[in-house]
Structure formats: C-alpha cells, structure tokens
Design a protein around this nucleic acid. Structure first.
Length: 579
DNA sequence: GCCGTTTTCGGCCCGACTGTTTTCAGTCG
C-alpha cells in the first residue's frame, strides 16, 4: 500500500502538474483550460486513496475515467504510464523545455514563464544552476528581472533548502500564536484569526495566513513589518502584506473590513479545491462568492461578515475547517450529513507516554501531574522494551519493579495505567514475556526495527503480533517520519482487517513529525469497524500538548468521538482494553 | 482537456500585489 504502488500516484501527479506548467508557456485561448484540466487531474491522483494501477487493473481506462477530472485523453496518458513508464506528450514537452520545472516553480515568485526565461537566457535547468547564476549576479541583468528579483530568488532558495517548502504543523503553531499575541498587544486590532492550512490542521504548513479587522490599516502593516521575527518584506500594501519570518516561513497579514471578515476567513482558510467547489455552488444559485462576501445577481451584498452564515445562505451545513479539502464534504453538507467530528475537549486521557526510566525526560510523577493539568481522567505510562537499546528499553524484571513502585505512589484524582510500548520483533513476536504483558492495563505495540522488509513480510509480522491477543494499541502504524523517513511497506488495509478481528486499536500518533496514522490513512480505513486512539507518544511533559495535532488529524479523517477510545470514561475504556 | 436537472457545445473561480514599467503580464493563494 505504501510501497512501490503509491509511487505511481506521486509520479503521475507530478508529471501532470509539469505538463500544466509547460503548456502555460505557449498559451492559446483554449489551452488555458487544458492547463486547468491537467492540474485538476493531478489533484485527483494526488489525493487518491489507493494506488492508481489498482484502479486500472480493476476496470481499465474506463474505471480511470470515472475519477473526477479524468476523461479519455488523460486516462490514456495514465494507461500509457502504467504500461510503459512514460507519457509521450510529457516526453515531447520535456524535450522542448528540458528543465526541472516542479523544482524551480516551487520557489516563491517563480512560475513557469520566469523559469523558461532563465533557461533560454542562461541555460538554467534547476535550482543548482540557479544558485550559480545568482552567485555571479547574472539574474539582475536579465530583462524583466532586477536586483530585487535576484534578492528574492536567493532568499527563496534558502527557504526551499531549509524546509523543502513546508514546516511541521507542530512547529508552526507556536510561531503563529506568538505573532497573533504581538499583533493584539499593539492595540490596533479589533479581531484577529489565523486561516490557511494551519486552521485546516494540515500536517505541514507552507505559510501563515493571518486576518485582522482594524480601522488603522497603515499602522497595523507598519507594526507588522517591525516585528523582530520578520526577516524580509516581500510585499506591502494597505490590505495585504507578505513577509518572510526568521523561522523560514512566509507570513501574510490581511486587514479586512468587518462586513467581509467571514468571507475572508472562509476564503483564506481554503482549501483551494474546497473553495472552487463552493464558488461553483454559489454560481449555480445565481450568486457570486469572493473574499469580500456573497453577492446576488445584481451585485448586492447579501452576506460576508460571518463565516457560518455563508454556508447557510448557500443551503449548506457548516463544514469544520479540517474537512475542507474537496474530498466530498460539500456533498455531505448539501444533505446536512456532516458528521459531528471529535473535539479536543472530548479527550479524556493519553495512552502512550514515556518516562525517565527509558528515554523520557521526566519522572512518572511529573508526567502524571502534567496530565492532571489537562484534566485527564487517565494516563498510560508505556515505556520501551529491551530490544530498543537506544531508548534503554526495560526487560521483564524492570517492568515488574517499576509497576511495584507505581503501586506505592498516590497519584490522586487520576488513573495511571501500567503499560509498555512493546517492540514487535522481526518474527512478529513481542519483546516481553506473555505474563508481563498480561498484567499490564495497556499494551502499545510498535515497529522500531527492520524497516526494510517486503510489504508481505511486514504485514504478516504485524498481524502475527495482533494474534497474540496481547496487543491493545498498534502505535504509529506506518512508521513514517515527515520529511525524514518514508513509511515502511505495509498493507494497511490487511492490518485494519486483522485489527478488527483481534480487537486491536490503531493509533493516531500526535507527535509533530509522525502524525501517524494521518488523515488519508484514516479516510482509507473508515470502511473498517475499528477504533482509534489519539496519543501523544510524549517523551517530556510539554509533549502532552501535542494532543491537538492528533485530534486535528482525526478531524481531517472525519472521525467521530465514538470511534476514539480515549474519549471514553475510565470504566468504559478498561472494558475495551481487557485482554 | 473535462463536463452536463440550464448544455454533447460552450463554458471553465477571482482579486491583490509586484516588478519593471508607462499599461500590464506574472505569480500567488
């Protein structure tokens, strides 16, 4: 599932996006829409829940054509790629423009047209070439480029290299909070809100979108660019100012009129795909929707101050930001069938945490106290087991001793569950004696070694572990680390089937670089009758606050409270955890 | 190139800001 198979999706998505970019170079009146068609097809493929070759194998080109935005021509391209590994149309365009288009256009301010000017004038094919040209100050001498362009491209490359364009959601939150706090402290702002992908809780964030109401536009913008976190001003106007932050992230501040605030919040929260669909619904009802409001046929403003009412006026149920990804949520909203998705306040405890005994930074007392501050009813302490030597994993005796010590501690008004994050060994057995595991309240099992097995081997390994009957929760099921490590190859659907049979709960790990399962995994598995647990995998007290990230993933995966075991009261939870 | 309870042809989301210019194309979200 996450192995070779999904690579086709990524490759084809990239190829279609590149075709779109290259088509934009010799734009004729009709090709503008051809460009859009390829972009739309790329989006569809990029968000598919299963390998595209599976769809093709199942129903051929006909099945492909049932996907949104994919017609005869594009289906043929996909077929060609699956059969030959190549797409003729792409190869031809590539011969004409032999440059790394997706890499170059990922730079801020760089689109296809500028990229091709650089190629034709200086032979620049990729970011490496571009870096050299900048060092030699060749860019500023080009027509249509100036000193400022060169400067912005230089900074764009730095940011690209630092973060490959996006930062982890968990890293961006504090940055956003800090800016909001400072802006509010200026006393110039009546209302402020962070929109964009951070509001939708995407696992990585490309930039910050902050919206504010103020009658002192110029002063607000001047205050904004004077913040000490601002590295460079990209653009500055009365309604929109863009800066680069020292953290390596770009940040937009928009000052909005009160009567347009809801429309702006809706618009800048996105996603782009959601908004396009929403505008089409507006058009079908004879309205026009933009970031200033909702307008009727005569251009009369009929809404916009309040985000919720925009959805209502379009005959739609309100859609939580995390669901706004163009994945069918608008159809549900039309039928008023948007599920009541889980909220952070539903969470009653954390079932995956570590202490000093292994690789945690805090004592059990410190961890439990912090959990109490969050008003949790319970917390499970789940230290590593002996095979994980780097984390000082404990053996059976050490667990016995640790649990004996726990028995003597008065934790007060919170239940502290005895547990472990037990390694699933290469052969699918668990890293502790059955007896030790049987005595625990909460056994979390995980893969920490031998990541490079084949998909079949890994799937069998995990299912074997489930079949011991001793596993409560399967932690970070795909093993990916965002920006660092690909998921191991595993058939996650077979794992879900086994989880269903063996009453194993799948984890939604909230750690910022894990977020595993992620939203697409969750949506893919929604057809199985399984439960999830949203845990932080905390290694210090501050990590307990990552819970909101995991809840964000769950919300993006449309999960309701009843699917998540750590929303239960203690007694109910223990029934589920019983072996 | 895709698509259809307005359509198998004629539509396809829309506005702000920039740079290098003298009226706008390119880029972004």
């Amino acid at each position: 599932m996450f192995g070779i198979g999904n690579m086709y999706n990524k490759d084809i998505e990239k190829i279609f996006n590149e075709i779109a970019l290259m088509l934009s170079l010799n734009e004729t009146p009709t090709s503008k829409f051809e460009i859009r068609a390829y972009q739309k097809a790329a989006f569809t493929i990029g968000t598919l829940q299963e390998p595209i070759e599976d769809i093709y194998k199942r129903g051929g080109a006909k099945a492909l054509m049932e996907l949104p935005g994919i017609g005869k021509t594009i289906a043929m391209h996909i077929e060609e790629y699956i059969k030959t590994g190549k797409i003729k149309k792409y190869e031809e365009l590539k011969r004409k423009y032999p440059i790394n288009m997706s890499e170059l256009t990922s730079l801020t301010g760089m689109g296809a047209k500028k990229a091709i000017v650089l190629y034709k004038q200086l032979g620049i094919k990729n970011i490496e070439d571009l870096k050299k040209a900048i060092e030699e100050h060749k860019i500023e001498k080009l027509e249509k480029f100036g000193e400022r362009s060169e400067d912005l491209i230089r900074r764009g490359i730095e940011i690209y290299e630092k973060s490959k364009g996006r930062m982890l959601l968990g890293d961006v939150f504090p940055i956003a909070d800090n800016i909001v706090e400072k802006l509010l402290s200026s006393g110039l702002i009546d209302k402020i809100m962070v929109a964009g992908s951070i509001r939708r809780m995407r696992e990585t964030v490309g930039d910050l979108d902050i919206l504010a109401i103020s009658d002192k536009q110029t002063q607000v913008m001047d205050f904004f660019i004077s913040l000490n976190n601002v590295d460079k001003i990209v653009s500055k106007g009365p309604t929109k100012t863009t800066v680069w932050l020292k953290d390596g992230l770009s940040c937009d501040l928009r000052v909005i009129e009160p009567k347009s605030f809801g429309a702006a919040v809706q618009y800048f929260t996105g996603s782009k795909e959601h908004n396009i669909e929403l505008r089409q619904i507006a058009i079908s009802k004879g309205y026009k929707l933009n970031e200033y409001g909702l307008f009727d046929k005569r251009g009369k403003n009929i809404g916009g101050s309040d985000e919720k009412s925009i959805y209502e006026q379009l005959g739609l149920q309100y859609i939580p930001p995390e669901m706004r990804e163009g994945r069918g949520e608008l159809e549900l909203a039309k039928e008023h069938k948007i599920p009541k998705i889980v909220e952070l306040s539903d969470i009653q405890g954390d079932l995956h945490t570590h202490t000093k005994e292994t690789d945690g930074a805090n004592t059990i007392e410190e961890m439990v106290n912090e959990a109490k501050k969050l008003h949790y009813k319970y917390v499970a302490i789940t230290n590593h087991t002996k095979s994980l030597k780097v984390a000082h994993g404990m053996n059976d005796n050490q667990f016995e001793e640790f649990f004996a010590r726990m028995n003597k501690i008065d934790f007060g008004n919170i239940k502290v569950l005895k547990g472990a994050e037990v390694d699933i060994l290469e052969n699918g057995s668990l890293d502790l004696k059955d007896k030790t595991l049987e005595e625990m309240d909460c056994v979390v099992a995980a893969i920490h070694s031998k990541f490079s097995m084949s998909e079949d081997e890994m799937t069998v390994r995990v299912i074997k572990a489930f079949e011991t009957g001793l596993v409560n929760i399967f932690a970070h099921p795909t093993g990916r680390l965002i920006g660092m490590r690909e998921p191991y190859k595993i058939n996650i659907e077979k794992v879900a089937e086994a989880a269903e049979r063996n009453n194993v709960v799948l984890e939604i790990n909230s750690f910022p670089n894990r977020l595993d399962l992620n939203d697409s995994n969750i949506l893919l598995l929604s057809k199985y009758n399984i439960k999830f647990s949203i845990d932080t995998d905390s290694h210090r007290t501050t990590h307990l606050y990552y819970m909101r990230l995991g809840v964000g993933m769950a919300r993006r995966g449309w999960l309701t409270k009843d699917k998540i075991i750590n929303t239960l009261e203690y007694n109910q939870l223990m029934k589920i955890l019983k072996k």
